[in-house]
Computed example of a mutant assay.
Amino acid sequence: MTNNHSVWTIERMRGLGVTTDVVTAGSILGIGRTTAYQLARTGAFPVPVLRAGNKYLVAVAHLLDAIGAEK
Rank of each mutant, 00 (worst) to 15 (best):
2 T>Q: 03
2 T>K: 09
2 T>A: 15
3 N>R: 03
3 N>V: 11
3 N>D: 06
4 N>L: 12
5 H>E: 05
6 S>C: 02
7 V>N: 06
8 W>M: 12
8 W>K: 08
8 W>S: 03
9 T>N: 05
9 T>L: 08
9 T>K: 02
9 T>W: 09
9 T>A: 06
10 I>V: 15
12 R>E: 14
12 R>Q: 05
13 M>Q: 04
13 M>S: 05
13 M>V: 14
13 M>K: 06
13 M>R: 04
14 R>P: 08
14 R>Q: 13
15 G>D: 14
15 G>I: 04
15 G>Y: 11
16 L>F: 15
16 L>C: 13
17 G>T: 14
19 T>P: 05
20 T>H: 05
21 D>M: 10
21 D>E: 10
21 D>I: 10
23 V>P: 02
23 V>W: 02
24 T>G: 09
26 G>H: 04
26 G>T: 08
29 L>D: 00
30 G>P: 01
30 G>A: 05
31 I>R: 04
32 G>S: 12
33 R>A: 02
33 R>H: 09
34 T>S: 01
34 T>A: 13
34 T>W: 11
34 T>Y: 06
35 T>H: 11
36 A>P: 08
36 A>S: 13
37 Y>M: 07
37 Y>L: 02
37 Y>P: 11
38 Q>G: 07
39 L>H: 00
40 A>L: 04
40 A>Y: 01
40 A>V: 03
42 T>E: 13
42 T>N: 01
42 T>W: 05
43 G>T: 01
43 G>R: 09
44 A>V: 13
44 A>D: 04
47 V>E: 00
47 V>I: 06
48 P>D: 06
48 P>E: 08
50 L>K: 14
50 L>S: 11
51 R>P: 09
51 R>G: 03
51 R>Y: 00
52 A>S: 15
52 A>K: 09
53 G>W: 06
53 G>N: 09
54 N>R: 14
54 N>G: 13
54 N>E: 01
55 K>C: 08
55 K>W: 08
55 K>P: 00
56 Y>K: 07
56 Y>N: 12
57 L>F: 10
58 V>C: 02
59 A>H: 15
60 V>L: 03
61 A>L: 11
62 H>A: 09
63 L>A: 00
64 L>D: 01
64 L>F: 08
65 D>V: 08
65 D>S: 10
67 I>S: 00
68 G>Q: 12
68 G>S: 05
68 G>V: 12
69 A>M: 10
70 E>L: 14
71 K>Q: 15
